[in-house]
Amino acid sequence: MKGKVAKLSYGDLTIRSLSFLYIGLMIVLPIAAITMASFKGGPGHLWKQILQPQAISSLKLTFLLALVMVVINVITGTATAWVLVRYRFPLKNTINALVDIPFAIPTLVTGMMLVVLYGPRSVLGIFLQNHGIEVIYNKPGIILALLFVTFPFVVRAVQPVLMEMDKDMEEAALTLGASKRQSFFKVVLPTLLPSILTGAALSFSRALGEFGSIVVVAGNIPFKTQVSAVYIYGEVESENLQGALGSAVVLLAFSLLTLVILNLIQRWSSKYD
């Protein structure tokens, strides 16, 4: 609103410069560094790093598993939010509190929990193995880990919107002759859509970068169960930083893309307010 640049007081100046310095030094500089380092050998070289058979195979796996997870998470997350807001049942408040547990538990511990539960040494794991289902050290284990660490995203995005959404709107639809199913798909779902998409984008972005829980459950076999984050870690460990940069830049680009998409969703949904 201000036409001229307002004179900043010393306090404002301190706040401004501290903030710029912190964001610049801690966030912008590292990102600039990794981007420049990866383009050091030219875009052709970077492209070659990305297309390295092992790198590209782990990238493909990462995106595929993240996608599968998002589909499941959108359905279960929305259903969970729905049940928590709309229905009454025993232990509801406790369960509502426990929804955030995956955010608090270290991801490494998450992975170990899954190994204990479904691993080759557990009763359940042995049972599943006898029926030809390998969870741990295979793809289902990775999806389970991803589902666990991203569980709260969709629930916590949808829940507040659902709480604020008046029953009036649905009831209006019902009085206008809509069936319950029609009122859900034509009134409720479109209202929830921005928040569902927000939850989905957050989950997807988190899944692309997830490391701690996967490294324990995945087995990390190249071309089979090695995701990108684990591949990058492997390259760094074997002192091949250049090899890690291709995949790292791809993940970084998708992180940025997610933020842009989240901004767009927010702008799109705020037009109804």
Partner: peptide, 21 residues
């Protein structure tokens, strides 16, 4: 938006960035 980046970036990639810098 830039401030949100640490939430979106993979922790492993964050580590790699720090090594480079």
């Amino acid at each position: 938006t830039v401030l949100d980046l640490p939430f979106a970036v993979s922790p492993v990639v964050a580590g790699v960035m720090l090594i480079i810098l």
